[in-house]
Structures are given as structure tokens and as C-alpha cells.
Design a protein around this nucleic acid. Sequence first.
DNA 1: GACAAAACTACCCGTATGCGCGATTGACCG
DNA 2: CGGTCAATCGCGCATACGGGTAGTTTTGTC
Lengths: 207, 207
Amino acid sequence: MTIRVAIIEDDRVIRQLLQILIDGSPGFYCRQTFEDCASGIPALVLEPPDLVLMDVDLPGISGIEGVLKIKELLPQTQVVMLTVHEDDETVFQSLCAGAIGYLVKGLSPVQLLDAVREAYLGGSPMSPAIARKVVRSLHTNHNSPLSLRETEVLKMLCEGENYRTIAGALFVSTNTVKAHIKNIYEKLHVHNRAEAVGKALKDRLVP
Amino acid sequence: MTIRVAIIEDDRVIRQLLQILIDGSPGFYCRQTFEDCASGIPALVLEPPDLVLMDVDLPGISGIEGVLKIKELLPQTQVVMLTVHEDDETVFQSLCAGAIGYLVKGLSPVQLLDAVREAYLGGSPMSPAIARKVVRSLHTNHNSPLSLRETEVLKMLCEGENYRTIAGALFVSTNTVKAHIKNIYEKLHVHNRAEAVGKALKDRLVP
DNA sequence: GACAAAACTACCCGTATGCGCGATTGACCG
DNA sequence: CGGTCAATCGCGCATACGGGTAGTTTTGTC
């Protein structure tokens, strides 16, 4: 069970150090290293690795765009990001784009290999701060401006139900549903269903 | 900097062991323990702790509902779940409900205290498998059935734009937009905007 | 017990929407 | 070279929808 690793990293020193470390460790294998996505991604497609270590700050195609491309072409291949400084926002975006975890450059060799192994074995290595950010993005919003009833209605709007169906489910008249929906629109500052549903799901007003 | 911990756990033995461990460790404090949410939550409101250790399998009000209630009443207080077996789905739901992390019962005392400290210091302690599940839930869907143009239209639907606005933005006629939307409905198996937006955001078809 | 907010009901009106049918063009593929 | 599909455009029709106005009942809070 050897983990085949590829590296995309523009800094030659870091790239070579990483390769030597990984390729020199039992259970790991690294023959593919690239200095940018433009050259690396087509090569990866020809010989897909298990896992790609990808710098976030790359010249040309950025690391985030690179992840999108790689996951599009090779859904099976996992991508782990490499960053110098722990920039929450870019790391978060990388994860949204499809990265499975990330490493801070400057980790000890042991920690680095551990993280790569964890990513390979079904985990998602990341720092506590990023983990918190990611978990927070799951949380339902607890200061929703909506009343209980309105939230119920909004939930059904998200399912695509119409006035009649919602009215039937809540045992009220369609007029009442209309009134609720009108209030929802006001409170969310939106003017139609699509926008209300968009806001509801983006702001996690409904489960 | 003492971390004030409360415990809600129906098993008397586990509850007392946890309390003895936590209260006996320097930097930790635990005077509040409860066997269910019904008695615990009102008491917590009177004297909010920094962190609550909450069993997922509770009689009466479940742990998941308990998290919702606590985060509603005490948004500042962090909740960490306790589970016997690592049931991915319930743990995931707990995190969605507002928990910040979770611990498997049977962790060593050192690991347990570490995890509580991590949760208090801005992290989100969880197992690799759950971390992976959480990260996956962020990923944009890479096998969307929609064409590029349809995805563009769908994105604007999510913003609540109408035929005319979308047509203007894409420099096409409203009829074309109608056709695209009709195709989107077919491919997503939905019949109106709200449902399309709901599906798009839930399945992460749009960023 | 007064007052506010939420929940509920009702009606009208203009238009945005969903759905039916049909059509042309260009790109890609075997 | 025929077939498929994305992308483009057109028209008619029934209805679901958004906005406005107006009111009662219930619930909860001070």
C-alpha cells in the first residue's frame, strides 16, 4: 500500500525538499513534481496519483482554480493544499473548491507524512482554526428574524411547494400562507421565492 | 484562565467519572452535571458555562435538540458532543445543529482534556472520518448534469433574478432564458424556481 | 389588564411564471 | 454523413405569484 503523491509547487527548494522527504519515506512514492498547474495538470491526467500536494499561491492558474480542474478531471484523486501562512479565507475557498485538507509549510517531516497519510486514509487534515471555520459554516443560524411559523413555511418553499400545498400541510388557508410569505420577504429583504430560498439556504435559516 | 465545563449525560457512572476527571484537572472546572436536557438547560441559563459536554443519546430531549436549544439560549456557550459509537450521521447532524466538535467516550483522560481545551481555544475536535464528511459537504458538485450556460442561468435564479434581468445579463432573449430554465427543471427533476434553487444549493451545483 | 407581536383570514389586480408546441444553427462524434 | 445536444428564438395560455389593503383571534409579556 504505497501512497502515490504528486507535487505542484513553484518554489524549487520546497518542491525538491518535499519530494525527497516523501519519496524517501517507506509507504510513500513521489516521481511527479511540477512548478505550475499549466504543465502539471495535463501530466497528472496521464498518470493519476493518489494524492496531489498543491501550493495555494501559484503563478498563472491559482491553486484554487487548480483544485477545481483536477477534481473535474480526476474525481478520485485527493488534493491537499500547501500554504505558508494560515490565511483562513483562501484555505476555506480551497476546501470548497474540492481540496480535502491542507498543510502549513514548516510542519515537521513526521507531522507532514502523518497528514498525508491521514488524507489518504479518509481523513481531512487541517488546523483547529480552519476546522472551526468549516464547522461553523454548517451551523444553523440562531438569530433568524423569522417566527416559528414563518420558518416552517420557508422550509416548504425550499422544497418547491406552492400556496395550496403549504396551506394543506399547515391546515390553514392559502391567504394565510400568502401573508406569511409576504412577511418572510420583508424580513429577508427579498422579493420572490427563488431569492428567499437562496438566502434561506445560504444563511442556513432552515436545516 | 479556567475553563468552566458543564456535563449532560444520563449514565451516572460516566457522568461522575467525567466530572472527577475534569474538575480534578488544573485549568478546568466542573460543578454542573445533569442527567437530561429538561433539567440541565434551564440550570445552564442561570449560570452559563464556557462549554457543555453533551451526550447524543439522551432520554427525552435528544442531544441534537438539546444543542439547538442551548445555542438558542446561550450562543456564546460551546457544545461538544459525547458519543459511544462513531455514528457519522447523528454526529454530523449534531454539528449542523450547532455543536462545535465531539468526543468518543473511551478516549484517554489526556486526549479528552486536550479535546476540551482545543474546543475552548477556537478549534473543533473531531475524528478524521467526520472531518472528511464535513469537508465533503463543502465541495462543489463536479458531476452536475447541467451545461455551462444552464449553470450560469441557475446561479442567477438563486439570486432571485427574473426572466428579463437574466436575459439582459446574458445578452439573449427572454425566450432563450425560458428554454434554459425549462431544461434545468427537466434535468434536476423539479417543476419551479424555488425547488430548483433549493436543489442547486443543497447539491452545491452552484458556488 | 393593557399592549404588542404573531397567526390567521379575505379580496383584488396585474404580471411573472410554467408548459405546451415548434424551429434554426453550430459543435461534436462515431 | 447522420445523429445528438447545447444554444438560440418565437408564441399562446392558464395560473401561480407578488403587492396592496383590511381585519380578527390568539399568544405572550410587562
